[in-house]
């Protein structure tokens, strides 16, 4: 349990900061509008070939910085900045 204020956002609520679930951007849905890029407190977002990408090792779900993941809150296309479920922990049973 992180010592910082418990984030309201559901994905972050029960995890250690070091164990954060990184977000990813679904490239096929990204408009390339760049709204998310300057908002990331960890400078995890950058442009690659017209679409934006999140560097998984830098993303902390905005925990400790803001109540909501900034990229999710600002993105104009619903379900484009999402939790990266391709990570091993989501593949393992239990």
């Amino acid at each position: 349990m992180g010592s910082a204020a418990t984030p309201r956002f559901r994905f972050g609520s029960l995890r250690h900061k070091e164990e954060c679930v990184p977000f990813k951007i679904i490239a096929s849905q990204c408009t390339g509008c760049s709204a998310c890029e300057p908002l990331c407190p960890n400078v995890a977002i950058s442009e690659k070939e017209g679409s934006f990408v999140i560097e998984a090792t830098k993303c902390t779900e905005c925990v400790g910085h803001f109540d909501e993941p900034q990229c999710v809150a600002a993105c104009p296309v619903d379900n484009t900045c999402v939790v990266d479920t391709s990570l091993p922990r989501y593949q393992a049973p239990g």
Partner: peptide, 14 residues
Amino acid sequence: APACNIQCNYCNRK
């Protein structure tokens, strides 16, 4: 200026 900070029902930026 491609980014926006609101969503309007008459706009689709996709």
